[in-house]
């Protein structure tokens, strides 16, 4: 018993230490961004960013909040997509995951491979674009982004694996009671899958929240409000894109976003989710714990 206690303390001590160090490591860049966003532009030009603000100025924030319409619109678009996408995606993924792990489902291997195969071969940008934009007619339509993010093979297989921890007897007992498969899933299985749903839902939500690439392809400037991260990408990447391409040699761009404006935009676009995360996390962690007690 004594040796086990000692090793317990040792492991716990190491854990606290490593986690603390890693946490600081993850926090540093944020400090850099926030401090740059409240620095004075002239100071940044001369000395670069620092962990402490160089000078102090809220000009960048004033500039953003003078006309917050775009930003608010982007928030609304992203939040809407995230909420609905996560809910719908989660339901489909959970259904599929459950069906695919049912041992009495003869098609499960076939369908699993059907889904996994898409990670090995994808059509690439141009063919996919032609299909989605031209044949499905989704160019300039939020649905092009919304639908394509609904699920990934990885999340389905992950879910399938999670569902395995729900004892088979539950399905069997449901069958004995004469319930249909869907009813079993909805009434008996879903409530037991909280940790899986929390994890998968978190990944789905993050997928929607961080999306900018599909928006760049399918939305561009055709929509009035860009999804949040694409909006941010536009603010941050303009100078970069001009400098690394032929346009930079050929056009005279009058106004590029300043460093402080870029950083302030980043703070405004990511700040709220960071503040919100602990609240979401509470449900997430308790969901896992509830599931774990049972499982």
């Amino acid at each position: 018993m004594r040796s086990s206690d000692k090793s317990d303390y040792a492991l716990r001590g190491v854990s606290y230490l490593v986690v603390t160090v890693f946490t600081i490591f993850c926090l540093l860049p944020f400090v850099l961004i926030v401090s740059a966003s409240v620095s004075e532009e002239s100071q940044i030009m001369e000395h670069g960013f620092g962990l402490l603000p160089r000078g102090f100025s809220l000009t960048a924030y004033e500039f953003i909040f003078k006309s917050p319409r775009q930003l608010i619109g982007s928030y609304v678009v992203t939040i809407t997509m995230t909420v609905f996408g996560t809910a719908i995606g989660l339901l489909i993924i959970a259904m599929t995951g459950y069906a695919l792990q049912r041992k009495d489902f003869p098609l499960r291997n076939g369908i699993s491979f059907f889904i996994y195969f898409t990670t090995l071969f994808s059509a690439g940008l141009a063919p996919t674009y032609l299909w989605v934009a031209r044949e499905l007619g989704l160019r300039g339509n939020y649905l092009a982004v919304f639908l394509q993010l609904l699920m990934t093979p990885w999340l389905i297989i992950l879910m399938k694996n999670f569902v395995r921890s729900v004892p088979n007897e539950i399905t069997e007992s449901g069958k004995v009671d004469g319930a249909g498969d869907f009813r079993i899933f909805l009434r008996l299985i879903l409530p037991m899958m909280k940790p899986a749903l929390a994890t998968t839902g978190l990944f789905l939500a993050l997928g929607y929240w961080n999306e900018w690439y599909l928006s760049s392809l399918y939305l561009g400037s055709t929509v009035e409000f860009k999804p949040l991260q694409y909006y941010l990408y536009n603010v941050i990447n303009t100078a970069n894109a001009l400098k690394s391409s032929m346009a930079g040699n050929n056009v005279t761009v009058t106004q590029l976003p300043t460093n402080t404006l870029k950083m302030a935009s980043a703070v405004v676009a990511t700040g709220p989710i960071v503040l919100l995360y602990p609240f979401v996390q509470r449900y997430f962690v308790s969901g896992i714990t509830v599931g774990a007690v049972k499982g």
Binding site: L27, P29, F30, Y233, I236, N237, T270, Q281
Partner: peptide, 13 residues
């Protein structure tokens, strides 16, 4: 929560 932060940073940043 803090460990999750880097995931939110745009790769350009």
């Amino acid at each position: 929560a803090v460990m999750f932060l880097p995931y939110f940073i745009s790769v350009v940043l």
